[in-house]
Design a protein around this nucleic acid. Structure first.
Lengths: 203, 203
DNA sequence: GCCTTGTTGACAGCCGGTGTCAGCTTCGGC
DNA sequence: GCCGAAGCTGACACCGGCTGTCAACAAGGC
């Protein structure tokens, strides 16, 4: 018995992770059901049998219940970008890296739709999502900087990389909104292709 | 005497506008001096001889002290876009419209630098700026939709317009950040040219 | 078994934001 | 001028997100 897959992790850490996950699912369910602002932290923590104070020992803020994993997502996209062939032009490489986001959304389309609709009804929360995206921007720009780029001096390379990375993310947002508008009927990958091609050719 | 330039506006409205303006300047000064989060609404309203409650009769929230005019700015940019020749390609037309933002920043560079630095230290506030920019995005996309565009069906026109508008705004952000990084030494207009040209040729 | 460390609930407090209310000022009609 | 309607104000109470503190308890290492 007791053949733990992770022998390094004790009871403490295991229960902690369980509670964390439970708080996330309970919270998201309540958010989608009653709205983000209408759901208080006491509602969520009471659903877990915890006090309001204890909630903040698992999450630094209410928003992190929703966006806690988003930094990791940014790192993944950047990692994908790093794996693209060096000869590929930046715009095309970004399109490839963004396939990670496409796959992520398609892994649970229903959830993705619900989340996006909740954000639409909670502008302040959507604003925080954009803030997280600023970090993605920086990570992607840093990856572009590592790639061999046609030596041009007229735009400082840092500016060039950030502008391209930011534009690509904007295109994804536009595509994602359109995808939500079609109730996930359209192909997110095709929409992203269309959005990016509309800005610059995907050569 | 009493030859008011605006006969329509009574004493009530005049004092109201005065107080509003005073709250904005006092607030911004305190924000830049002590930081946004460290400045309480009572600090600001007390500086104006008002109670905390009265502050909210002039501004719906603390953030609106900083971003109150931003919606108007978006409308102005969109208006500029509407004035561009119909034959001009969208990317170039947006570059022209964004000259409004360039001029705005250059009208008081010092203030612009201080504001941007404060936003850098207050991520939550910067997030709200991005939220306002979402509105700009929509306004600009709507203007693009009004323009004659090469009939293409593969990307839905709404998606196409939003992607292009969002990318242009992202380029401005990148250029603006670079401009702030150079302490306003570089030419904001040139940086914007460089950023947009790096994404797509400004033809 | 003991001691360190982590976790918890309870309490108090700060701040942004809202509802309410009574008292005052401005304004418009007369 | 007068007077009533409408606007503005401060004071108070309240909510919810968030933080500091503290005593009690459970888990883990030794």
């Amino acid at each position: 018995m007791s053949q733990g897959v992770e022998p390094e992790v004790g009871l403490r850490e295991r229960t902690r992770r369980t509670v964390r996950a439970e708080l996330m699912t309970i919270g998201m369910n309540l958010f989608i059901l009653n709205g983000y602002d209408q759901t208080t932290i006491e509602d969520i923590s009471a659903g877990c049998g915890l006090s309001k104070r204890s909630f903040f020992r698992y999450f630094p803020s209410k928003e992190d219940l929703v966006f806690g994993n988003l930094e990791l997502v940014g790192e993944r996209i950047a990692a994908r970008l790093g794996e693209r062939p060096a000869a590929e032009p930046p715009w095309l490489a970004l399109r490839g890296a963004l396939d990670f986001l496409v796959t992520l959304n398609l892994s649970d389309p229903q959830r993705s739709l619900q989340l996006r609709r909740m954000l639409r009804d909670t502008p302040a929360l959507d604003a925080r999502r954009l803030e997280k995206q600023l970090r993605w921007r920086a990570l992607l720009a840093a990856q572009l900087a590592r790639r061999a780029s046609p030596a041009a001096e007229s735009p400082p390379p840092q500016l060039r990389d950030r502008a391209i990375a930011a534009s690509a993310l904007s295109c994804f947002d536009a595509a994602h909104d359109e995808w939500v508008a079609t109730d996930a009927q359209a192909s997110l990958a095709d929409l992203l292709d269309g959005a990016m091609a509309a800005v610059a050719p995907l050569t």
